[in-house]
Each structure stands twice: as C-alpha cells, then as structure tokens.
C-alpha cells in the first residue's frame, strides 16, 4: 500500500506521461487521410474508434485533436496562472486603490459566465486560434487570483514580514524573497486544476463555432460535426473522442485534487 504522497506523485507522473504520449502521437502521425472505401465504419480492429463519412480514422483524428487541446490547455492555463499570480500578489502587496480595482475586476470577470466571456473575447479577435486562446487565458485567472490574494494578505500580516519591513527590507525583496515562494505550492495546484477547465472550455467554445476553425482537427470540431450524424446511429463519432477527452481531463483533475489535499494543512496528514 502506497501512502498518499507516493500515489500522488505516481498519478502526476502518469498524467504527465499520458500528456507526452498523446502529444507525441498527435504530432508524429500523418494527417488522417480521406479514404472513401473505408467510410462510416463502426469500431473494428483496424479502426478502434471507427471511421467518419470521409473514411478518416477516428482514432487518428481524436489523437490529433487531443494533442492540439493539450497544447492549447497548457498555454492558456500557464498564461492565466501567471496573470493570477501577478494580480493576486499586486492586489495584496500594494493594497489601497490597486487592491480595490483588482478585486472589482475579479468580480467583474466572475460575473459573466466563462462560456459567454470566451465567446466575446474570441469575437473581439475575429474567432479562430487566437480568439479561443486569448479567451480561455483571459477568463480563467480570477478564481486563482482570489485565492492567492487571500494567502498573500495573510502572509503580509505575518510578524516576521512586518519585522522585515520595519527593519528596512524593501518591498520588492519581501515580495520575491518571502511572499511569492510561499504562494508557489498554491500556484502549482491552481495551475494543474485550471488545466482541465481550460481544455474543457476550449472544446466547448470550439464546439459552438467560436473557437478553432473547422479545418483544424480539434475535439470540439469533431464533436460538433458528429451532431449531424447522431440520428443516423453513428454513435462512435461522438462517443470515443469525448471519452478520450474526458479521460485525459479526469486524470489531471484527480492529480490536481490530490495535490491540493496534500497542500492543505487540514488534510495533509491523512
């Protein structure tokens, strides 16, 4: 029986491994070619995920789409985590009107449902890759920023930091030397927990037609196309790509959840 720390590390490695494998598979494999002799096949040995109406192998398309989703997810969650760190610590460290302004901004962004906000940002960029990337990156930071702000505010009150301030250590040093390192575990957990959200929202917005263009092999595109074939009984077009996406995302959600539990003092020793 492994203890919680060991199993969490294992899970993180597994998630990382799955990530690399999918990305490699997606990058290495050639574009799924249309083959009209093979169209509309239900899942079989040669095509475990079946084929679509153009005879393209759905496994290949799914892997390519997932690989794209993962790259996008990594990029967007990294950007929004960085934004959260910057805004959260600035808010706590500077206080005063900066704090009010940032808190107001957090409330503002949280007031519009993610999907709607991403749609709006995507429209502002004329949809497409940059639209959805910016949309996801700019809409996911508030929750983490709020957590980091709270943590940083508590740290600010810590006697040893008050002392450091009084002894003339400049704010910049206190911030980079003491506050930011303390926030890193929270930041990591937040980043890993944000990653699934980012992927899901990218797929959702693409599904609605505001994200990646139809010629890209994105999961959202695949699922959106599958809608038209559902009533004719081609369930495999929707089932497997979605299942693969859900499996990847749950792996990360689980890893993030475990990490969060280990980092929270109340549950760290269970």
């Amino acid at each position: 029986m492994k203890n919680r720390r060991q199993s969490t590390l294992l899970l993180l490695l597994l998630a990382g491994g799955a990530l690399c494998a999918v990305m490699l598979a997606g990058a290495l494999q050639p574009d799924a070619a249309a083959d009209f002799s093979q169209k509309n096949l239900p899942p079989c040995l040669a095509h475990p995920f079946g084929t679509d109406w153009l005879g393209r192998d759905m496994l290949g398309r799914t892997l390519a789409g997932l690989s794209l989703s993962i790259r996008l997810g990594l990029l967007t969650s990294a950007v929004s985590a960085a934004a959260a760190l910057a805004l959260g610590t600035a808010s706590a460290a500077l206080g005063g009107w900066v704090d009010s302004a940032i808190s107001w901004l957090i409330d503002l962004v949280m007031g519009v449902p993610h999907i709607l906000l991403i749609m709006l940002i995507s429209l502002a960029c004329g949809r497409g890759f940059w639209g959805v990337t910016l949309g996801v990156a700019l809409s996911h930071w508030p929750a983490l920023a709020r957590v980091l702000r709270g943590e940083a505010l508590q740290l600010r009150q810590a006697p040893y930091l008050q002392m450091a301030r009084r002894m003339g250590v400049p704010w910049g040093r206190v911030l980079t030397g003491h506050i930011v390192p303390h926030l890193l575990p929270q930041l990591w957990a937040g980043l890993i927990l944000q990653f699934p959200h980012a992927i899901l929202h990218e797929a959702s917005v693409t599904f609605l037609g505001f994200g990646l263009p139809p010629e890209e092999p994105a999961i959202g595109v695949i699922l959106s196309e599958s809608m038209a074939y559902l009533t004719t009984g081609r369930w495999w077009l929707a089932l497997f790509p979605g299942l693969t996406l859900a499996a990847t995302v749950s792996l990360f959600a689980l890893a993030g959840e475990r990490l969060r539990l280990l980092l929270a003092p109340a549950s760290a020793q269970e």
Partner: peptide, 11 residues
C-alpha cells in the same frame, strides 16, 4: 502515535 510525513515521500 500519529502517522506523519517526513520531508519527501516517506511516512
């Protein structure tokens, strides 16, 4: 007694 984590992975 309590089970507690050391630094690192051992408990």
């Amino acid at each position: 007694s309590f089970a507690r984590y050391d630094r690192g992975l051992s408990r």
